[in-house]
């Protein structure tokens, strides 16, 4: 069994908590976000014969009043950068966060997760944006906390980006 510390970061109200609530297990309540600023959850996965326990540090969403604590990313094996597909501004926030993370802890694997993929009518992210990310070498996925689409793939993609060992 391999444990990995994974952080989930993103702008405020991008749906991180919904992803966590539906597809991972946690023993801690929401109030940790407003007090400590982080909530720990766990996602168990099997990759081949290997069992993985991803210890998710679900960091409180960033807004104009609160920046994420990058110190929480120390020791992380990777992170999920969550974007709300229905709000273009959240992608900008994600990019900003990513840069600060690199500044704080260096380049570590990450995957951009465009949440709310089920809300196609309200989708604000244009295809050129995805191309721009791919051009930067960023991995990205569309996911839906509602349908479960792309959630496990996101974790698996992240695992795949991690160095062996």
């Amino acid at each position: 069994m391999i444990q990995k510390k994974i952080c989930m970061v993103g702008a405020f109200a991008v749906g991180k908590t919904s992803l966590v609530a539906r597809f991972v297990e946690s023993i801690f309540s929401e109030k940790y976000h407003t007090t400590v600023g982080v909530k720990i959850a766990k996602k168990a996965l099997n990759v081949g014969d290997q069992e993985w326990h991803l210890i998710l540090w679900d960091l409180a969403g960033e807004d104009e009043f609160l920046q994420i604590r990058t110190s929480y990313l120390r020791g992380s094996a990777g992170y999920l950068l969550v974007v709300d597909g229905t709000r273009r501004a959240t992608l900008d926030t994600a990019v900003s966060i990513q840069q600060r993370i690199v500044d704080a802890v260096g380049p570590i694997p990450f995957v951009v997760l465009f949440n709310k993929s089920d809300l196609t009518n309200e989708w604000e992210i244009a295809n050129d944006a995805f191309e721009g990310l791919s051009h930067k070498g960023w991995s990205w996925l569309k996911a839906s906390a509602k349908t479960g689409e792309g959630v496990d793939e996101a974790f698996l993609t992240l695992i795949a980006k991690m160095p062996e060992g």
Binding site: S26, I27, V36, A41, I55, W57
Partner: peptide, 20 residues
């Protein structure tokens, strides 16, 4: 006992929180 892995994480987070 509760899930030790999650508690470890939270405990570390709290220590980081205190320090920060």
């Amino acid at each position: 006992g509760q899930d030790g892995e999650m508690i470890s994480g939270m405990l570390t987070a709290i220590q980081d929180f205190m320090r920060d």
